[in-house]
Design a protein around this nucleic acid. Structure first.
Lengths: 195, 195, 195, 195
DNA sequence: AATGAATGAGAGTTCATTCAT
DNA sequence: GATGAATGAACTCTCATTCAT
C-alpha cells in the first residue's frame, strides 16, 4: 500500500528528471532526493538505473496513450479533428510546463532514444514499440479520412510521415525552447493527411 | 604544424565517438585513447569537455554544409534534384557507416541537442544556428521551385516542415537502426515542396 | 514452538551459506532469503550478524562432535579404528556434498577462523575451544593406543600434530576442490599415532 | 619510475592489509589510505580489487619462494637442516610481526584461499600453483634424505603430508594467536621425513 | 510471530581535470 | 609539443540494521 505510493513517487520523479534533463545527467541520488527517499529505498523498488529508465519509458508510454491519443480519439470521430486534438493536447501540455517550470522538454521517447539507442538495446526496442503503437492512431486517422480505396503502402508512408512530422516538431521545440514549434507542425500534418 | 594535426585527430575522434554513442557515455579518456594522445594533451587543445563538444558541433556543421548541402547544390540547379541529392547524400553516408561499422548514428545535431539542450546552453544555441543555416538551403529550394509569388510566411512554414521531415527521419533511422528511414522521407519532402 | 523452528531454519541456512561461501560474502539478506523469512524476523532471533555467526559456530561444533567424533567412538573401542572412522566420516560427508552440490567446503572452523581471527575475537575463541574439544578425542586415541607409559608432553605434541594433519587436509580439500584430500591424510594420521 | 614506486607501495599496503585482516574486510579505500594515494590512483595501477588480490598473491608467492624456500636451500645442502631452516624462517618472521604489530597472520595463501576459494576461481588456482611450487622444495628434501630407492607414490604422500603439516600449523598459529605453533610442527615434519 | 518499508554508511569504480616535467 | 602521475568529486549499488504495524 504505502510501498506502492513510494514506488510511484520514485517513478514520477525519475520520469520528470530524465525527461527534463537526460539520462546520464541525472544521478540515482538526484531521483532519490526528488522522490524524498533514500537511495537504498529506490533500489528496493528498481533493481538498477537501467530497470528504472525502462519503467519510466513504459509508464510514459501508457500516460501518452491515455492522455494524448485515447483522449484525442474520445473527443471526436472526425479524423481531422482527432489529428488536431493530438497536436493541441501535446502543445497545451508543453506550454503548461513551459509556463510553470520554464522548461521545454520535447518528446521523452525521442530524447531517451537518441541518448541510449546504442547503450541500451532494451530501451531502444521499447521506443520502437511505443512509436508503433502511436502509429496505429495515425493509421486510423488516415484510413478514416481517405476511405478504403487508398493503398496500404501509401497509408504506411503517410503514417510514417506523420510520425516524423511530430517527432521533428518535438525535436525543434526542445532545441528552440519553444513549445509553439509543435503547433507549427499541425498544418503540415493536415496537409499530409489530405495529400 | 604537428600540433594542428594532433588537434584535428582529437576533434575527429571526439566527433566519431559523441556521434556514434552520446555525450555522457563517452569519457575524455575514451576520446584521448582513440586519438592516441595523452589526456593532458587533449586538455592543451581543448580547455574542457564542454569546449570539446562545442568544437565538435562546429566542425560537424562545416562538414555537413560542405559535403551535404553545398555538394548537393553543386550537382544541379534544379531545386527538386537538389532536394533529392541532399537526402541521397545523407542516406549514402549513413548506409556506408552502417555497412562498415554496423552502427546507425542519426543526426549529430539532433542527438547532441536532445541530450544537452538543458545542460549546455551554448551547444543548444549552436544547434539552433546550425539548423538555421541548413534552412537557408531549403528556402532556396522552395523559392526556386515555387517562384516569387509564394508568400514569405508560407515559405517559412515549408522550410520548417522540410527541416522537421529530415530530423524526424534521422530520429527514426537511429531508433530503428535502419538507414533507409532517411530515404523513406524523401517522397514526403518532395510532396511538401510541391504542395 | 513455531518460533523455535524458524530460529532453526535461519541457523541452518546461515550455517550452509557461511560454510559454502564465506562470512563477508554472504549477506544477511541472503540468509533470510534461503531461510524464507523476512530480514526483520532474522533480527528477532539473532541480534546481529556477529551473533549469528557465533551461533553458527556453536551449532556446527555440536554437530561435528555428535556426528563425527562421538559416532566414530561409538563404532569401536579400537583406537586405530576410531581414528579411521573419524577421517572416513568426514570424507564421506564432504564427498556427498561434492556430488550433490558440486561444492567443496573444507572445515567450517578453519574457514571462519582464517577470515575472522582478527575482526571477531569471540569467534576466534570459540574456534580455539572447539579445537580443544576435538583434541580430547585425539588424546584418547593416542593414550589408548600407546598405553600409560607415553609422556604427557609427547601426547600433547601428537595430538597437536593430528589436529594439524586434519586441518591441513581440510585446507587442501578446499583449495584443490577435491574431497579425497581428506582420505590422503589418513595414513599420515595413522603413522603419527604409531610413531 | 615514480609510478613504479607508487605501484609497489599500493601492492605492499594491500599485501599487509589482506594478510593481516582478510579480503572482504579490507576496502579499496583502506588500501589507498595506507599507501597514501588517492583511490583513483590505485585504480590506475590495478583495474579492480580482484586484480589487486591476484597481484598480491603473485608477489607474496615470489617473496615466499625467495625469502623462505630459496634462502633455506642456500643455507645448507643437508635436507634436514633445510627443512629446519624453512620452519625457523617462517617462525622468526611471524615472531617479529607478532612483537612489532601484535598480530598473528598465518599463511597468506591459506587465508585467502579459504575466504575466496568459491568466489574467485583465479585466486584459487593461483594458490594451487603456489603450493605446487612449495611442494617441489619438500620433494627435494624428501628425495635427498631418503635416496633414490623410495617409491614415487610414497614421496608424493610425504610431500603432501609436509605441506599439510605446515598449513595446519599456520592455521593454528592464526587462531591461537601464537607464532610458536609453527615451531611446534617442526618435530613432526622431521618425523615425517624420517618415517 | 512476522513483516513491509525504510535508511545511513560505505562498498567498488569512474569521471573530468591538473600539474610537474 | 607531449606526457606520466595524481586527485576530489561523483557515480551506481549493497550492506547491516531498525521500526511501525
Amino acid at each position: 500500500m504505502k510501498g506502492e505510493q513510494t514506488r510511484q513517487r520514485i517513478l514520477d520523479s525519475a520520469t520528470e528528471l530524465f525527461w527534463a534533463r537526460n539520462y546520464h545527467g541525472v544521478s540515482v541520488a538526484d531521483v532519490a532526493e526528488v522522490a524524498s527517499v533514500n537511495k537504498a529505498t529506490l533500489y528496493q523498488y528498481f533493481q538498477s538505473k537501467d530497470v528504472l529508465v525502462q519503467s519510466v519509458v513504459s509508464s510514459s508510454r501508457e500516460w501518452t496513450v491515455e492522455h494524448i491519443f485515447d483522449s484525442a480519439f474520445a473527443d471526436s470521430k472526425d479524423p481531422m479533428i482527432r489529428l488536431r486534438c493530438i497536436y493541441k493536447r501535446v502543445h497545451v501540455f508543453h506550454q503548461c510546463i513551459f509556463e510553470s517550470h520554464n522548461e521545454v522538454r520535447g518528446c521523452p521517447f525521442v530524447n531517451i532514444a537518441m541518448e541510449l539507442a546504442v547503450d541500451n538495446e532494451l530501451v531502444r526496442m521499447q521506443v520502437v514499440k511505443t512509436f508503433e503503437q502511436f502509429s496505429e492512431y495515425y493509421r486510423t486517422i488516415v484510413r478514416d479520412y481517405r476511405g478504403k480505396r487508398i493503398a496500404k503502402t501509401k497509408v504506411d508512408r503517410l503514417v510514417r510521415a506523420l510520425l516524423g512530422n511530430m517527432n521533428g516538431a518535438m525535436v525543434a521545440s526542445r532545441y528552440e525552447r519553444r513549445p509553439d514549434a509543435i503547433l507549427d507542425a499541425l498544418p503540415i500534418a493536415e496537409l499530409l493527411v489530405k495529400s
